[in-house]
Design a protein around this nucleic acid. Structure first.
Lengths: 268, 268
DNA sequence: ACTGGACTCTCCCCCAGGGAGAGAGTCCAG
DNA sequence: CTGGACTCTCTCCCTGGGGGAGAGTCCAGT
């Protein structure tokens, strides 16, 4: 039997951390003296502690560590671990994307922004809409676009697809999304149904390139809106003028961003 | 002037988070109404908020974000950012290493461990020693080894180098390190000085391969120590039988780990 | 000028995964 | 039997937020 200090030496986990793991039921000492409260660990617990240590180095939450340790089947454990490794990989991708747009933000010469104030009439389109969480947006988008294409047929000359993005999505990580394709007579089939985009005054600009970093353009547009003493009304609109459907060259992609505004009285 | 909710929409930072940033002085509203406490932001603050958002996505601590924003020189800012990207890369390397040794830990068939109990006589060597933090170990190791080689000349047939690792290093992230090379007449020059490794009973095993994951071997050795009813005495010893100095093939590296123990009375 | 709804304020509690230290009790070898 | 090393529990702190309560404010419509 090992006292906590000795066990700490063997496992390279701090005494404090071991006590915490006991507290949360992650690694219970083999014996706890009922009178003194002293914790005693067995040698067999060392490998267990090491697994915990490793998993924590991978930033696996303690609750998940617990699940992994409790699953008796090695294959299942391996699967759970693999799942976390995948999570880490996607984190890495996110990190790389953030670095790219950070460079753009910090570049001393911001490209001048072409902004246009445009009155958009109401138009009826074929739409798919849902309440979606931030993390599910790419998957939802792909599914919705596939369904639109399945119902409407391949893209014709009826104009680029677009979307409406609820502000709550950015603010609370969850919000209403709507994806549409222009259509002369929008059908109702599956999730696809007719929808009328309301008429609006839009502040419009175009984002060039990948979608990573599009929120920098959003910010620039926001600055413009404020500088011109306008105020925002309703969800943001995007239109995919050139996108992955059109070319694989992501540098050529063009996304139109339209921000509905109220035109103030003292503005022309 | 934008109220906090509008600013939140433009920057995709939550209202809560904006208030927090105000509180810690990271992003102060342009105007705060002295009577109502209402925060008002200017359009010019949007890009600033975006930079903060990006940096947070990179898990840059708020304090560092502050430093980056406060440095007026773009080059300097770029350097600070680059520094963080580097940090992230090394994190990634650490992650990969953790995955490797995790696989070893979870592999159903642990390789049997060759352990030996050996009486080691006292021996005088040429040593460099310091108090070192966990993160500085690799750099310290490289420097110490270089100094030893500079003083003693290229490795000769006087036996492999070795080290002593204070337990506090693992337990508290900081501890005493000693690196040595055997030498007939250890000189005193610079940090190099003679040192006598005390005689000891060592429980010895050999770790094969890269140093990543060496603590798994530590754990196995610890189990053995406990199972054989021994108790640990003093800092761990390592000896670099085959290391990066000898071959680039990391799979061929061999590190001897020796754990000083007290031999108990009831053991042979 | 009022009123209702949306917005904002502050304050407090919560999370993970620890770190730091106080003050008291316990273990064990000499 | 005594002293030093060890361990116990307890409380508070950190980062970077999230959630909600209850009160105060803003503004557009009537």
């Amino acid at each position: 039997m090992l006292a906590i200090g000795e066990f700490s030496q063997m496992t390279h986990l701090s005494v404090r951390t071991l006590r915490r793991y006991h507290e949360v039921g992650l690694l219970e000492p083999e014996v706890v003296d009922p009178f003194t409260g002293y914790r005693y660990y067995s040698g067999a617990q060392i490998p267990v502690a090491q697994v915990i240590h490793r998993l924590r180095e991978l930033d696996v939450p303690l609750s998940d560590v617990q699940r992994i340790l409790r699953s008796p089947d090695p294959d299942q454990r391996a699967a759970l671990v693999a799942q976390h490794v995948e999570r880490l990989e996607s984190e890495l991708a996110r990190t790389r994307a953030a670095v790219v747009s950070l460079r753009r933000l910090l570049s001393p010469e911001p490209a001048p922004l072409q902004v246009e104030l445009r009155a958009e009439p109401a138009v009826t389109v074929a739409a798919v809409e849902d309440e979606v969480g931030e993390d599910d947006v790419p998957a939802w988008y792909a599914g919705a676009m596939a369904e639109l294409d399945a119902v409407l047929g391949p893209p014709a000359g009826d104009g680029p697809p677009g979307g409406l993005y609820d502000n709550a999505l950015f603010e609370h990580g969850r919000g209403h999304l709507l994806l549409y394709r222009p259509a002369a007579e929008p059908p109702t089939r599956g999730r696809v149904h007719p929808f009328t985009l309301p008429a609006a005054e839009l502040v419009v600009t175009t984002h060039q390139g990948e979608h990573e970093g599009i929120d920098v353009t959003y910010g620039e547009l926001g600055s413009w809106v404020v500088d011109n003493a306008l105020t925002v009304a309703g969800p943001v609109r995007e239109r995919y003028l050139v996108g992955p459907r059109d070319t694989d060259d992501s540098a050529a992609w063009r996304t139109e961003i339209g921000w509905p505004v109220f035109r103030l009285a003292n503005n022309p």
